[in-house]
């Protein structure tokens, strides 16, 4: 079940569209923001609210790479390793995150502080390598400044 606040937010978003189903992706974002991931119960509830079959909701939710299907750490690091970032050393940053925080791609650090997801281009190729931490953008990363930046996320 979704709480009243979430239902109200989904209904407000619903009014932007001519049909209910168009509100599916925005609704999945709403429930993900609440719990950090999309729980099976939330998928059922969103489906009921928008009159979309549960299996369809799951099919959609699992198609898009930015929806999470398991609990995440307190902060989500989304690090790009695509070609421009790779050229500028993103691979060594992946190694560094493993060494420093015990983080592996699609994993969570043992202390639950960070989760890491490898991204396919986040549009910062001119200032590569780059990452999103939660919704904050950080670019021109190197072995030194990435750790300083991450220190501010406890």
């Amino acid at each position: 079940m979704l709480n009243e606040k979430l239902v109200a937010e989904i209904n407000r978003l619903r009014s932007k569209y001519k049909d209910a189903r168009s509100c599916l992706l925005p609704s999945l974002y709403v429930v993900q923001r609440e719990e950090g991931w999309i729980t099976p119960d939330a998928m059922t509830a969103v489906g009921e609210l928008l009159n979309v079959p549960k299996a369809t909701v799951k099919g959609v939710a699992t198609f898009y790479s930015m929806y999470r299907h398991k609990p995440m750490g307190r902060h989500l690091i989304q690090l790009c390793t695509n070609v421009a970032c790779m050229l500028m050393g993103a691979e060594s940053l992946v190694d560094l995150l493993k060494e420093k925080y015990g983080l592996t791609p699609n994993g969570t650090s043992p202390d639950g502080r960070f989760s890491l997801v490898i991204m396919e281009c986040i549009g910062a190729c001119g200032t590569a390598p780059a990452m999103l931490v939660d919704t904050d953008f950080h670019d021109s990363l190197n072995d030194k400044n990435i750790l300083e930046i991450l220190e501010s996320y406890q």
Partner: peptide, 22 residues
């Protein structure tokens, strides 16, 4: 309308399907 991480949605018919909640 916010997408959710799918390069293919830059293709216009996929974009439309995505907007339709598919």
């Amino acid at each position: 309308h916010q997408g959710a991480g799918a390069y293919i949605c830059g293709e216009e018919t996929a974009l439309i399907d995505s907007l339709e909640g598919k």
